[in-house]
Computed example of a mutant assay.
Amino acid sequence: MDRLQSMRVFAKVVELGSFVRAATALDLSNTVVTRNLADLEAHLGTRLLNRTTRKLSLTESGQVYIERVRQILAEIDEADAEVSSRSRKASGVLRLCGNASFGQAQLARLLPLYAKDMPDVVLDVTLSDHGVDLVQEGFDVGVFLGVQKFDSSLIARQLAISNLVLCASPDYVARRGEPKSPHDLAQHDCLNFAFEQLRHHWPLQWDDQHINVPIRSRMVSNNGAVLREAALAGMGVMIRSSFTIEDDLTSGRLVRLLKEHHLGQTSVMMVYPSRRLMTWKMRTFVDFMAGQFPQPESDPWLAAL
């Protein structure tokens, strides 16, 4: 008896509720399907299915066995896919969604690298600062910031940590001086996101304490790129995630302030369905992104600074 084949036949009969439909789906004869079930029951020494002329139902033993069989078959299929994916070709449309600021600063740089190795994959990219229902809206993979609750059928995988960075242009620092503590920000011009709760205070993690720092906004905007240009022009001090200003800090266009203190951080998360449900194009993208961030507990954008 081919036990694996008999298990696949049993699972298909249970799934479709019919020997005839299972035979058609598996491209087998009715006789072969019936023989496989009989051999499996003989091997186990118990009946798995109650059969009538109109209906099939699982016995108590069959109910226990089908759960284990499904797990075993899924793991076998996953093992096969893991090995054969190396020789298969990813193709089709890959729908990605991501946080807007991370997408502009990092995905825009990374996606061409992925596309170069996957010429038959068409990238459909949506960036948004609003919440996205990955499954409901038909996305394959999402890249988000912060800790969010996701459907239990999805895998949420941390790619990296991004620290909050207080920064200003060298010109601004030369004119106004460098703050020595967060409380000094009350004497500086601040460039601020246009959220009402941030207009007068910045909630910061000052080492091990959470504090609300009074600030004076010089500019507010709902767009990080606008605030960045204002900071580069010497208009004031801003707080941004490290991944948005890595190049500015490296080149010296912006100066990191209070760098000896921890101001807070956020997680960069990749979310996707279980590997058992992944297409080849999704698998290659997930592996590519994981390879770009080999140390998920660290901040790669501040590593060299």
Score class of each variant (00 low, 15 high):
residue 277 L to R: 11
residue 291 G to T: 09
residue 271 V to D: 07
residue 278 M to K: 10
residue 279 T to C: 00
residue 269 M to G: 01
residue 277 L to C: 10
residue 298 S to W: 09
residue 284 T to W: 13
residue 289 M to G: 11
residue 293 F to A: 09
residue 282 M to F: 06
residue 289 M to D: 14
residue 273 P to D: 00
residue 276 R to F: 11
residue 262 H to C: 06
residue 275 R to G: 14
residue 263 L to E: 07
residue 270 M to E: 00
residue 301 W to H: 08
residue 271 V to S: 08
residue 264 G to Y: 06
residue 272 Y to H: 15
residue 291 G to Q: 08
residue 282 M to D: 00
residue 292 Q to K: 01
residue 277 L to W: 13
residue 273 P to E: 02
residue 291 G to K: 03
residue 281 K to H: 12
residue 289 M to T: 10
residue 262 H to D: 08
residue 264 G to N: 06
residue 285 F to N: 12
residue 297 E to H: 10
residue 279 T to V: 02
residue 295 Q to D: 02
residue 288 F to L: 13
residue 286 V to W: 09
residue 278 M to G: 11
residue 265 Q to R: 10
residue 299 D to T: 05
residue 287 D to P: 00
residue 270 M to S: 05
residue 298 S to T: 11
residue 294 P to G: 05
residue 281 K to L: 07
residue 299 D to W: 13
residue 294 P to N: 14
residue 289 M to W: 12
residue 296 P to C: 07
residue 283 R to M: 09
residue 294 P to L: 10
residue 297 E to R: 09
residue 266 T to E: 10
residue 283 R to W: 04
residue 288 F to A: 13
residue 269 M to W: 05
residue 268 V to T: 12
residue 274 S to Q: 14
residue 277 L to Y: 15
residue 287 D to F: 04
residue 279 T to K: 07
residue 269 M to P: 01
residue 266 T to D: 15
residue 290 A to H: 01
residue 263 L to K: 08
residue 263 L to F: 12
residue 303 A to T: 02
residue 282 M to N: 05
residue 278 M to W: 13
residue 269 M to T: 11
residue 273 P to W: 04
residue 281 K to F: 12
residue 298 S to K: 13
residue 287 D to S: 08
residue 293 F to Y: 06
residue 266 T to P: 03
residue 296 P to L: 04
residue 265 Q to N: 14
residue 275 R to C: 11
residue 292 Q to C: 00
residue 291 G to H: 02
residue 302 L to Q: 06
residue 284 T to Q: 15
residue 289 M to V: 14
residue 284 T to D: 14
residue 282 M to Y: 03
residue 302 L to K: 00
residue 303 A to P: 03
residue 301 W to T: 09
residue 267 S to I: 06
residue 269 M to Y: 08
residue 292 Q to L: 02
residue 296 P to E: 03
residue 265 Q to C: 09
residue 297 E to K: 10
residue 285 F to W: 09
residue 262 H to V: 02
residue 297 E to I: 04
residue 283 R to K: 15
residue 296 P to W: 02
residue 272 Y to P: 10
residue 265 Q to S: 14
residue 286 V to R: 05
residue 268 V to W: 12
residue 292 Q to A: 07
residue 270 M to D: 01
residue 300 P to I: 01
residue 301 W to A: 09
residue 279 T to L: 03
residue 281 K to T: 11
residue 289 M to E: 13
residue 291 G to L: 04
residue 296 P to F: 04
residue 297 E to W: 03
residue 290 A to Y: 01
residue 270 M to I: 05
residue 297 E to T: 09
residue 290 A to L: 11
